[in-house]
Design a protein around this nucleic acid. Structure first.
Lengths: 136, 136
DNA sequence: TATTGTTATACTCTATAACTATA
DNA sequence: TATAGTTATAGAGTATAACAATA
């Protein structure tokens, strides 16, 4: 079939993101984690005491969608929430949360290295700078 | 906030795809079109008489999800379906469908040129080859 | 007055299963 | 036996609106 789409950068960008995203999700599933959850755990781990609103702004996740996500993490014993003042809650990883994050990081590190290895060497160093120009 | 994610290619890929996808969707909305619909129209336009199943395979859209999408296109008068044999239907654009596709193409061509222009010149030629290595 | 956290809700996209009819 | 088209359905992701409490 003739397919004019395969030479369209925006389309290829979407397909590449879908393909790699699906693969990563499959690798994270055995840990009981999704990509959005892992990104939240990473940010909490790197910024102890951070608020849900601050994480949402950084990751482009609406406040309204952070609430149930954090509730599941708390119920699973991966994070704890401590009042910073009367209206804000500081987020921290529990011991279990740190262990889980460590496992997720191993999966992700492997996966990212694999992604880069699939890109021909002469294009590899250009990949991240090109992507960052499109959203940062 | 400290954010270890911004230097992770897979994460950056997802964010870049989301950002550009949202922007393109906003530009297609005035035409009453979504990205998936436009990609289907493009394939039908380039392959008159193609079947729904063949398009689904090419675009990674499930047969079950093609059905309502094509029904809406037919109800909107943009495509017509003619029996190829007892079980297959050939898809073709109507005159209105060709007009709509032409409008969509103008939007997309502008958008793709703009995307490429945002990527620093020294990285630009490496972008599509790198993406294609990840999904083709 | 703006922000935080929360609930409820709706819409899109996508995935699976099941069915009929035909190649 | 495999394929085409269809329907129904469920899950995930995401968006908006509204509310109470606090900065």
């Amino acid at each position: 079939m003739h397919d004019p789409l395969i030479s369209v950068p925006g389309y290829s960008l979407r397909r590449a993101a879908n393909a790699t995203g699906a693969e990563l999700s499959a690798r994270l599933a055995p840990l009981g984690l999704r990509q959005s959850v892992v990104s939240v755990l990473i940010l909490i781990g790197a910024n102890p005491g951070v608020t849900a609103s601050a994480i949402g702004r950084q990751l482009d996740i609406q406040r309204a969608n952070m609430a149930p996500l954090l509730k599941r993490l708390e119920d699973a014993g991966l994070i704890k929430r401590l009042p910073l003042d009367g209206k804000s809650l500081g987020l921290d990883l529990t011991g279990d949360g740190q262990d889980k994050l460590k496992q997720a990081r191993a999966v992700i590190d492997d996966f990212e290295a694999e992604i880069l290895s699939r890109i021909p060497a002469e294009h590899r160093a250009h990949f991240l700078p090109a992507l960052e120009a499109l959203w940062r």
